[in-house]
Design a protein around this nucleic acid. Structure first.
Lengths: 140, 140
DNA sequence: CTTGAGCCTGTACCAGCTACAGACTCTAGA
DNA sequence: TCTAGAGTCTGTAGCTGGTACAGGCTCAAG
């Protein structure tokens, strides 16, 4: 038992990465841009994390998975940290983000439609005439 | 009549930008990365464009609008320029791209679902309990 | 005591542009 | 003819959201 005088193992950057599945370097990046707090350092200048850092990083990663930008994540975190945050404010951010997600879906659907209807006209043969190229070339 | 000895007005970079709606700097960028050809230069080192440059830039812009990456655009252009291009090859590229567009749509729909169902639980009040924050915080 | 793993820092790189500085040139009006 | 402003030239830096490496320290096991 080497840690008999310290019952809780400290988390270093690599541990945090493994626990969350986040890339090691990304953690430092998040710290640099201010979405992760600067953790305390050990005597040898190693970052020392705890459970709250794990929770915060998971929060960030989940928000990123849902397509929030890092700026939006910062806003969400500020509301969370603010203590005085209200459901209404968070709802506002989430709704704004939802609208942009829906706009992206609409864009991509339009693109999908153009692509699929164009490709459907392809003969797939060795012929030089190609409806895809035509569609791209057309001034329309 | 200043151009009496040259009936066709030459296009400079700004003209090409206006004709296509492309950003002025983007034209130079496309030249640097090799999707636009290096145009001939005037005696004073100004780029001189013609109709074919206009057509090519429109092609690139249309492909970009459809979500092709610049690498994919390069491939498409190589097939177009190759002369021996076949409909089948182009169809292959377009189909691969269509698949990635569909994958993005699926991702975004999943995100939309999570967001909208979460936001729907919001009271929108001044209360500190927020289902959006809960959803982001949950380890799930 | 050595060896490898892990951590530290700063910096460079990716896409796909956009913008700006500083120098040159062209064009239209006075 | 002169001059002011617009256009062009080059290289380079910035943006987002990371990723990756070099060069140096430190730590733990054999």
């Amino acid at each position: 038992m080497k840690n008999h005088h310290r019952s809780v193992k400290v988390l270093r950057r690599g541990d945090l990465a493994k626990l969350t599945g986040c890339n090691l370097e990304t953690i430092r990046y998040y710290e640099n841009i201010g979405v992760m707090p600067e953790p305390p350092r050990s005597s040898k200048n190693y970052r020392v994390y705890d459970d709250r850092h794990v929770a915060r990083l998971r929060f960030i990663m989940r928000a990123r998975e849902l397509g929030f930008t890092l700026d939006e994540v910062r806003d969400l975190l500020a509301l969370v940290d603010g203590g005085a945050q209200t459901c209404g404010e968070v709802q506002g951010l989430a709704n704004a983000h939802l609208a942009s997600v829906r706009a992206k879906i609409a864009d991509l659907k339009r693109i999908e439609h153009v692509l699929s209807s164009t490709v459907a006209q392809c003969s797939g043969d060795d012929v030089p005439e190609c409806p895809v190229i035509d569609a791209l070339t057309e001034v329309a």
